[in-house]
Amino acid sequence: MSRAEVVREAERVLQELAKHLEEIELEETYHVIEAEGVREDSAPERDSSFSEAALSIAPRRDGRYYVAEAGAWV
């Protein structure tokens, strides 16, 4: 199936699903649990073996920098 066909079919799928959801009066549930979600600021942590490992899988790099496209945004 081509990409365009997938996209066309996707919209049929959406309509099929959405037709079951009529308008209702209820609050939205974004999170199912109550969590505090806040932490105290603390002494910073740094793991050089991690930053090396992360950098080593970058498809393009220049020294310690990751490299994205150049010149495309100006």
């Binding site: 603390s42 910073p44 942590e45 740094r46 930053s51 992360a54 950098l55 920098y65 990751y66």
Partner: peptide, 23 residues
């Protein structure tokens, strides 16, 4: 002292590029 959502250092002024980072 630390970043907003992790404990990497927030002060990067004297840090080598891409060292104040975590996943």
């Amino acid at each position: 002292r630390t970043k907003l959502f992790c404990t990497s250092p927030a002060d990067y002024r004297d840090a080598e590029p891409n060292t104040n980072v975590c996943e």
